[in-house]
Write a protein that binds this DNA or RNA. Structure first.
Length: 806
RNA sequence: GCGACCGUGGCGGAAUUGGCAGACGCGCCAGACUUAGGAUCUGGUAUCUUUGAUGUGGGAGUUCAAGUCUCUUCGGUCGCACCA
């Protein structure tokens, strides 16, 4: 069979007959399968794209054959840095390269033969889409969930531009090797932290991989503790966050993050130069480095002192880079006796170390002692346990107006502005009179101009485009300037799954009633690298829109599956720079898309992925030929016998156990084992040498139906030869008949002291006692047990009998 | 550094969730058919000193029973907030 030929033939027919059409009137059985849309970076799809889309499409087909009304849309996440960098390098405009890439990728995706609903397509860089991305921004802005503040960015002093983290290699700019510093710029943020608690709580509702939920949980990073206010001698006050208020009496110094605004105010003239030098050095250090616990601690004394509110003790104020301004209050208290990090720090700089907690059983007297225990040297709190002491101290501080209980999250607000060209413009106008003014919704979209100089020179590219920048204030009508920044592409991708359901709507981003029926997504499929960012942002936007009444569900993705990564043949991630990118095209041309797709599904665990190898692909081509031979042989058989004898019974057992297993495996994306089962059924059909032709025909029909989601074109062709109804996609997926799954006899393993001794075959309905007696009386067992006393017999029905004896 | 995950034949990978380790396939070996074979079919294929013993990165533990649970150790992969 010429597979590439029949693929073209069936694709044309399927398109003509519109067999994938989603039935908007049958919402009761809707099933929304969504693969994370792709970024049109390279010109072509690589094997990894196929590994994402092929198997998940097979899953969608499986659901369709189970009778669901399947919606499987596709689109492109088209804004972003790579297109812009490519443009800077080559001069090709991001819009041109992106649209061209989308065009090629669409063609390739169509050639795959997936059941995508192309009429629902979404492309994020088109004005009819980003208009609504801007709308989302405005709604959050109105709700007080979007705001501006200063924030540090990676800055290359030589290129004069903001760098993405991935453009910073070992602390230097990837383009010019200049040391990258951290610089404060005014940036837009979304207040995702307002939803921290709900984002955390609702994880329990989700059918997601446990590890992903755990990662989000950690990312949100809830910790309950308290805040303590320290008064600076002759100055302001500041608060520290701590989870160990019970150690408050042991504070021997406090530390501010080097970026803390108070540092300038409090630093004494003698310490000025040392502090300045330290702050400059900190600018060059990344947060990941700063948090490293193995790195030697460093810090500088500011010359100022603060008062510990609990005991009035005067302690020095230091700055140190292990304190992050972005977490907690940007200040911590140093308790060397009960914290490893503080202990090292105090030893290095000769600070006091006072023990204030003892182990409960007096067993451990070493410092630092980081466990909970019993409080000592803590005045009125002596003798309290750490657990009680924490609360008691915080309660007292609260009475004094110097602190209290506080829950802290590691989650930070989402920085959404980018000083880049290739993104959705931020729909805000800055007016000298009226200040920050949102663009009226009727004026959306704020269109991204084409003729922009996006060479990096220290400013947002849009700020240099006078035609774009100059506008009038919607409130007072005076000349005003547009915001020159664009939105993070994660904003575009945090609501696209809503637009799919209503992508042609010109009046609103989506119709509430429509999406309430279509959403949430029933099965979301994509890479695990999105565990924290995209998946968290999409959850946040969904909840924010819900609170504004635009939709009525709490979570966007009910069930989530991560596919693994297909690595290059060398075992490394595929990348152009390594030159290990595997293109599917030559394999698709040679073997056909069905063979290629099924090879990906059979040769790798879907969740694990692994290094590419084309060793097994021929095997799948051969397998297709074997199946084709079976069909052709079966077609020539004509007798109508359906008698079920021993041979038929055996084949029927394999048939129904295969069906059962395949159905189970498909649900959990265990495609490789599903295919292995189908191969076993194939082998059993080949071995069958009975003469009940009509029965055999039934089994063969089941075989091609089972295969249909994996090899849609091939099975459609075979189905036609067999005279089955068209299209095979509308057949119902085989369902196991339990009555054929019980066998008359079962084989059991017989073990002595857990070691395999022999195997026996017994009637499957044999009871425990009868079985025990039977086994013990077997001559082979008698022989083994010659000089032994039986202590116990363990029977696992259908599996084994273990005789414990000595 | 922090967090998550993984480690099973020559290879890709299974193992009903604590119950016969190595399903299915590749590769390899032998045979059949053949002028021919990179086609097809049949059989074999964890290791060893093979009446038996050993074996799931290494070491310990729990259990009648451990690839699976616990501890420890080594190695690898992914994420860490401006790549998407």
């Amino acid at each position: 069979m010429d597979l590439t030929q029949i693929e073209k033939k069936w694709q044309a027919k399927w398109e003509k007959d519109d067999i994938y059409a989603f039935d908007k009137n049958n919402m009761d059985k809707k099933y929304y399968v969504l693969e994370m849309f792709s970024y049109p970076s390279g010109a072509k799809l690589h094997a990894g794209h196929w590994f994402n889309f092929g198997p998940s499409d097979s899953f969608a087909r499986f659901k369709r054959m189970q009778g669901y009304n399947v919606f499987e849309p596709m689109g492109f996440d088209a804004f972003g840095l790579p297109a812009e960098n490519y443009a800077i390098k080559t001069g090709i405009h991001p819009q041109d390269s992106t649209l061209k890439n989308i065009d090629t990728m669409e063609k390739q995706l169509k050639a795959m033969g997936a059941m995508f609903n192309w009429d629902a397509e979404v492309v994020t860089c088109m004005p009819d889409y980003y208009k609504w991305t801007q709308w989302v921004f405005l709604q959050l802005y109105k709700k007080g969930l979007a705001y501006r503040k200063e924030a540090p960015v990676n800055w290359c002093p030589s290129c004069n531009t903001v760098l993405a983290n991935e453009q910073v290699i070992d602390g230097v700019c990837e383009r010019c090797q200049t040391t990258v510093i951290r610089k404060n710029l005014t940036q837009w943020f979304f207040k995702i932290t307002d939803y921290a608690e709900e984002l955390l709580q609702d994880l329990d509702k989700l059918d997601w991989p446990e590890k992903t939920k755990l990662m989000q949980k950690h990312w949100i990073g809830k910790s309950t503790g308290g805040e303590v206010e320290f008064q600076i001698v002759d100055g302001d006050s500041f608060r520290v966050f701590t989870t160990r208020a019970d150690t408050l009496f042991g504070v021997s110094y406090v530390v501010l993050a080097p970026e803390h605004p108070l540092v300038d105010k409090i630093t004494t003239s003698e310490q000025k130069s040392a502090v300045e030098e330290y702050r400059l050095a900190t600018q060059k250090t990344s947060e990941i480095e700063r948090q490293s616990t193995t790195r030697e601690k460093s810090g500088v004394f500011t010359g100022a002192y603060a008062i510990n509110p609990i005991n009035g003790k005067k302690v020095p104020i230091w700055i140190a880079d292990y304190v992050l301004f972005s977490y907690g209050t940007g200040a911590v208290m140093g308790v060397p006796s009960h914290d490893e990090r503080d202990f090292d720090f105090a030893n290095k700089y000769g600070l006091d170390i006072t023990r204030v907690v003892k182990s409960k059983d007096g067993s451990c007297d070493d410092l630092p002692y980081c466990e909970l225990g019993v409080m000592v040297n803590s005045g009125e709190f002596d003798g309290m346990t750490s657990e009680d002491g924490k609360l008691a101290i915080l309660k007292k501080l609260e009475e004094m107006g110097k602190g209290g209980l506080k829950t802290n999250y590691r989650l930070r607000d989402w920085l959404i502005s980018r000083q880049r060209y290739w993104g959705a413009p931020i729909p805000i106008i800055h007016c000298d009179t009226c200040g920050e003014v949102p663009v009226p919704e009727k004026d959306l979209p704020v269109e991204l101009p084409y003729d922009v100089d996006f060479a990096p020179d220290g400013k947002s590219p849009l700020s240099k485009h006078e035609g774009f920048m100059n506008t009038v204030c919607p409130i007072c009508g005076k000349p005003a300037r547009r915001d020159p920044d664009t939105l993070d592409t994660f904003v575009c991708s945090s609501w696209y799954f809503l637009r799919y359901a209503d992508n042609k709507n010109a009046d609103e981003p989506f119709n509430t009633e429509k999406i309430n029926k279509m959403l949430p997504v029933d099965k979301y499929i994509g890479g695990a690298e999105h565990a924290c960012m995209h998946l968290l942002y999409a959850r946040f936007i969904t909840k924010a829109l819900r609170d504004m009444g635009y939709l009525n569900f709490d979570e966007p993705f009910t069930s989530l599956v991560h596919q693994g990564l297909i690595l290059g043949p060398d075992g490394y991630k595929m990348s152009k720079s390594r030159g290990n990118v595997v293109s599917p095209d030559e394999f698709v041309t040679k073997f056909g898309s069905d063979v290629f797709r099924m090879y990906l599904m059979f040769g790798f665990s879907y969740v694990e992925g692994g290094p590419w190898s084309d060793d097994g692909i021929k095997a799948l081509a051969k397998y297709f030929e074997r199946v084709e031979r079976i069909i052709d042989n079966t077609c020539t058989k004509t007798n109508g016998k359906k008698d079920i004898g021993a041979k038929e019974k055996e084949l029927n057992y394999v048939r129904h156990s295969t069906i059962k297993k395949v159905n189970q495996d498909m649900e959990v994306f265990s495609f490789n084992t599903a295919i292995a089962r189908i191969m076993e059924l194939t082998n059993a059909i080949i071995k069958y040498d009975g003469d009940s032709d009509a029965f055999l025909k039934e089994v063969v029909f089941d075989l091609i139906d089972l295969l249909a989601p994996f090899a849609p074109h091939f099975t459609e062709e075979l189905n036609e030869r067999m005279g089955g109804s068209y299209p095979i996609l509308y057949h119902s997926y085989p369902v196991a008949d339990e009555k054929w799954l019980t066998r008359d006899e079962v084989e059991l393993a017989v073990q002595l002291n857990s070691k395999m001794r022999t195997r026996i075959t017994v009637p499957s309905e044999m009871g425990r006692e009868e079985l025990e007696k039977y086994v013990l009386e077997l001559p082979a067992v008698q022989e083994i047990l010659a000089n032994l006393t039986v202590r116990k017999v363990i029977i696992i029905p259908g599996r084994l009998v273990n005789i414990v004896a000595n």
